[in-house]
Write a protein that binds this DNA or RNA. Structure first.
Lengths: 176, 176
DNA sequence: CCGATTTAGTTTAGCGCTAAAGGAGTTGCT
DNA sequence: AGCAACTCCTTTAGCGCTAAACTAAATCGG
C-alpha cells in the first residue's frame, strides 16, 4: 500500500530498493531533496536577478562588499575567503563588475600586491535593491511552513551543517 | 547576548540585519544552509567518485539506466526527462559514457528518430559499486542526527519541496 | 501522397568555474 | 645589500552546462 504523493526522491529511493536491496536508501530522503531544493532556490533567484540586470556571482561580490559596512571596500583576498570560490573566479567577477561600473579597483595602500575593491554608488544601489527584493520574495517561498516548522528546519540544518563542516575540516587535515 | 556558535549563515544574517535593518533576514537561516549543504554533499560525492574513476554526471546517467531495471535501456528522451538537465547535456553525457565503454547506443527499433541507450556489463558493475559506496558513506554523514530528527528533516524537506514544485509549475503556466 | 509541422537527438557558441601557470611585490636569511 | 622563498592577484586551458541552431525522421491535413 504505497502512499500516492511520492516525490522524485521517493521514486529514486523506491527504484534502488527494488534493484539493489542491500544498499541503504535512507540518505536519499534528505540528500536528494536538499540538492533539489538548492536547484529550485537557485533558479528562482536567477529569474529575479535577470529582471534586475544582475547575475548571482555579481550579486555575491556586491553583497560581500556591502555587508562589510562602510567604506564598502575589501581586498580580493578577503573577498575570496568569504565567497567559497577560487581566487581566479573572484578576479574574473571583479573584472566583470568593474566593466559594469559596479565596483572600482585600486592598488591597496599598504601592500603593493593587494587590490582594494570598492563598491561604487551604483553598485551599492543595485545591491540594496536586489537584496531587498530577493529576501522579501524568498520569505514568501517559506510561507507554507509554519513558524515552528520553519525554525526547527533551520535549527536542524544548522546542526547538520556544523557537523559536516567539522568532519570535513578534520579529514582534510590528517593527523600529524 | 549573541550565542557564540554562529555559523556562516548566522554571520550573513547578522551582517544584513546590521546594514539593512528593513530587510527580512528570516529566509537566510534555511536557504543559505540548504545551498551550503548541497555544496558539501556534492564535494563529498566528487571525492568518492574520483577514486572510482567516475564523475557525477556519468553516475547520474548510469544510475538512471540501472534504476529502470532490466534490460537497463532507455531512450535519450526518457533519460533527459528524468535528469533535470537539457537534452544537449544528455547527448554529451551519453557520448562520454559510450567512449568509456559504459553504455552503448543503437537506433531504436520502433522510431527511427530515437536512440536506445543501454548499460554495458562494465557500466552496470561500476554503477552498482559506486551506488553502494556512496549510499553507505552518505548514511554516515547523517549519523549525527537522531532517527527522529532525521525523519522529521526528510519530512519537512519533502513538504517544502512539494510546495515549491507546485508553485513554480503554476507560475510557469500562466492562467489561460 | 506531398509539403508543412512537429518531434528526437546532435552540434555549437558562449558562459563561469577550477586548477595551474605566470607576474609582480614583499619578506626573510645571511 | 642581495637573492630566494613566499604571497597576492591575474591569466589561461579545459570542463560541463545551457540555449539555440541544426539534421533527420515521423505525422498530419488537404
Amino acid at each position: 500500500m504505497t502512499t500516492d504523493d511520492e516525490d522524485g526522491a521517493d521514486r529514486i529511493r523506491a527504484g534502488w530498493r527494488r534493484e539493489l536491496p542491500d544498499v541503504p536508501v535512507g540518505p536519499i530522503g534528505v540528500i536528494t531533496r536538499i540538492w533539489r531544493l538548492a536547484q529550485l532556490f537557485t533558479a528562482d533567484r536567477e529569474r529575479t536577478l535577470d529582471r534586475l540586470g544582475l547575475d548571482s556571482s555579481t550579486l555575491d561580490l556586491l553583497s560581500t562588499l556591502r555587508r562589510s559596512g562602510p567604506p564598502y571596500e575589501l581586498t580580493s583576498g578577503q573577498i575570496a575567503a568569504r565567497s567559497f570560490v577560487s581566487a581566479g573566479a573572484v578576479s574574473q567577477r571583479i573584472a566583470r563588475a568593474e566593466a559594469a561600473g559596479l565596483v572600482r579597483r585600486a592598488r591597496s595602500g599598504a601592500d603593493g600586491r593587494s587590490v582594494a575593491v570598492r563598491l561604487t554608488d551604483e553598485g551599492r544601489r543595485m545591491n540594496e535593491d536586489a537584496v531587498a527584493d530577493l529576501l522579501r520574495h524568498e520569505e514568501t517561498l517559506l510561507d507554507g511552513l509554519g513558524a515552528t516548522e520553519h525554525d526547527e528546519l533551520a535549527a536542524t540544518l544548522k546542526v547538520l551543517l556544523g557537523q559536516l563542516t567539522r568532519r570535513f575540516d578534520a579529514e582534510d587535515r590528517p593527523p600529524p
